[in-house]
Design a protein around this nucleic acid. Structure first.
Lengths: 216, 216
DNA sequence: GTCTATATGGAGATAGAC
DNA sequence: GTCTATCTCCATATAGAC
């Protein structure tokens, strides 16, 4: 702040990616994943702001100050968690909407993939969907952008199905919001983390969304 | 803690409900409502734990210390907010499930009432549904109890409709969770607060839930 | 019912040795 | 890559006057 140069732009940070073989110190990449995973668990239980850097550090057996070797701030840990539940689904799930098949087939595939991804990253979803107000405005805008893009892609497949006469005509924007809220809500009550635990949820939700409650 | 008597059980608190007529000081009841409403707005924007008692106080033009005349702690403000989105819906919406009519009619009425209540208490829903981890264990258990009761009543009407053949057979527990997640999610994106703003959402959700996406 | 003043504790973050 | 030690700030909550 007082010096002539911004400190983060001074040069490459030279994080040697690997220590000498078999070293007792963890590689940086491993540590980052360990930190975000552990932090997500604690954030989910106690809420982001109530958790201290010391809490996160002690959960993985190091001191609070050591975290700053891996993340420049507590908010950057939260940002990393949020990315795994917003950017990752965009990259992993949305391609299913570009595959061959009817809107029904493509949306069914997306629902299944979404729930299974959510189950693998359950705690991250709990944190990422609820703690966005604690992000910096820049990070918040980035995260919200991924969420909005995902929502828009779902809306588009709904609108395509309505145009082709395969889906009932309704407001596609509201329908996509409702469907995604329903899917994401799973994170707050699901137990277990195997794909088999997701199957019953997916079966019920697919029946509910495509056929509705009303019996034929 | 050190004295022989618990301080809160010593006797009636004698909150004089009204000051002399036209007083410049606000009546206690009004102030409580003003505080919870204002606090909900700020909690929703910035997250419960990032907001200080000073922030809440200054938003209504008083000093931080004065809040403690109305609430014994910051957590009690949050608890009051949570009650309006859990206990109040139980009292105001669930009677619709006891009224005359088919499961379809009763559930349709509940969906409409739920969204309209949510719209009136939008910021409170945002806070109450996300900040439960910040409650004390006792308050948390109370709030979760209301939510679970509400969910159980929805599940029961679904199960009744399935038994009568009116609804398609599916897992009623998962379906009720999905439906309520879809409804509550509205709080995070809806704009406006008139009942008319709710109508389009209700129409879309009722069509989606009862008839499904698939065209007849 | 609201104020000023303050006690008290805890947080995020930094410095520099190893 | 992790440590110890510490800076600095800000939070909740209390005491007691008006």
């Amino acid at each position: 702040m007082t010096g002539p140069q911004a400190r983060r732009t001074a040069g490459p940070e030279r994080l040697s990616p690997v220590q000498e073989r078999g070293g007792r110190r963890k590689r940086t990449v491993e540590r980052r994943a360990e930190i975000t995973t552990s932090a997500a668990r604690i954030f989910a239980d106690q809420g982001y702001a109530h958790v201290g850097m010391r809490d996160i550090a002690e959960a993985i057996g190091i001191r609070g100050a050591s975290l700053y070797h891996h993340f420049p701030s507590k908010e950057e840990i939260l940002y990393a968690i949020c990315l795994t539940v917003t950017k990752e689904p965009v990259e992993e799930n949305l391609p299913l909407l570009d595959a061959a098949g009817t809107p029904t087939e493509r949306l069914t595939a997306l629902v299944g993939a979404h729930v299974r991804h959510l189950l693998r990253r359950r705690t991250e979803y709990l944190v990422g969907l609820h703690e966005r107000p604690s992000l910096t405005p820049e990070h918040r805008a980035d995260i919200d952008g991924h969420l909005q893009y995902y929502n828009r892609r779902v809306k588009d497949v709904l609108a395509a199905g309505m145009r082709s006469g395969e889906f009932r005509t309704m407001n596609p924007s509201l329908a996509s919001l409702g469907i995604l809220d329903m899917l994401n809500g799973v994170s707050s009550w699901i137990r277990g983390e195997a794909d088999s635990d997701a199957d019953e949820v997916v079966d019920t939700y697919v029946a509910l969304l495509f056929a509705g409650l009303r019996a034929d």
